[in-house]
């Protein structure tokens, strides 16, 4: 790709791998009983590219003028957030709290967070959430900002869940477009997984009224 330096490509791979590892830990693929004779594999958030949604939101939620005031102009929210996850991972590793061996090959170009097992990634997030990391060493906007650090751990989960179980995955080739230009290309995976039938004109499940009341006439 012209115009993108090797450094930028490497950074993008780092960010992508970190968020792949994140969503993979929150919603891994799993097997569901299909019938008496077999199971079916259900895609997790990584397979459905939900990490792209999380990154997109982090990069688009704050306007440029506000980013400038946060000194975020030359950085990015997704990069700073990936580094925050790494800080939690390093703390988990250095304090001897990991439950499973590190795996450096699962996500290419990833940082320490991506080398953790799924459960250890969630435990690293828990360390961050409990502020058991050195906040002074973090990048802006997280540096010495415990409220934002704690909030972001919820946000990352919430975004992953909303991205996975809403129609975002069905925007397919248009999923990273500006919202006005996205088009639903197929039935969303998350809706299929939950049995949600999608947008509806109505349902017949009317079971009457438990109570009613008459409006008083009001003089206008």
């Amino acid at each position: 790709m012209l115009g993108i330096s090797e450094g930028e490509r490497s950074l993008n791979r780092y960010i992508r791998s970190t968020f792949q590892a994140l969503v993979h830990a929150i919603i891994p693929p799993h097997y569901r009983n299909k019938d008496l004779f077999g199971t079916v594999q259900v895609a997790g958030a990584q397979e459905l590219h939900v990490y792209e949604y999380v990154i997109w939101i982090l990069e688009h939620s704050i306007s440029l003028p506000v980013k400038e005031q946060l000194n975020l102009v030359n950085g990015s929210m997704s990069k700073a957030t990936a580094e925050l996850l790494d800080a939690g991972a390093v703390q988990l590793i250095q304090t001897g709290q990991i439950l499973y061996p590190l795996n450096v090959t699962e996500f290419s170009s990833g940082g320490p967070f991506t080398t953790l097992s799924k459960v250890d990634r969630l435990r690293a997030i828990t360390l961050i959430e409990r502020l058991n990391i050195n906040l002074e060493n973090l990048s802006i906007p997280y540096k010495s900002n415990p409220e934002l650090v704690r909030d972001m751990m919820d946000v990352l989960n919430e975004l992953t869940l909303f991205g996975h179980y809403s129609e975002w995955t069905a925007y397919g080739t248009t999923r990273l477009f500006s919202p006005e230009y996205r088009r639903v290309e197929h039935f969303p995976h998350g809706w299929y997984q939950t049995g949600y039938p999608g947008p509806s004109f109505g349902y017949r499940d009317f079971r009457g009224f438990l109570a009613t009341y008459k409006h008083k006439k009001v003089d206008d």
């Binding site: 459960v119 969630l122 959430e129 992953t160 909303f162 809403s166 129609e167 998350g190």
Partner: peptide, 20 residues
Amino acid sequence: MSPGLTASFYGLSESGYSFL
């Protein structure tokens, strides 16, 4: 609610992950 909103409400907690 629809499933995306339902799921996202499971993601917000003061006490962190349920398995811990």
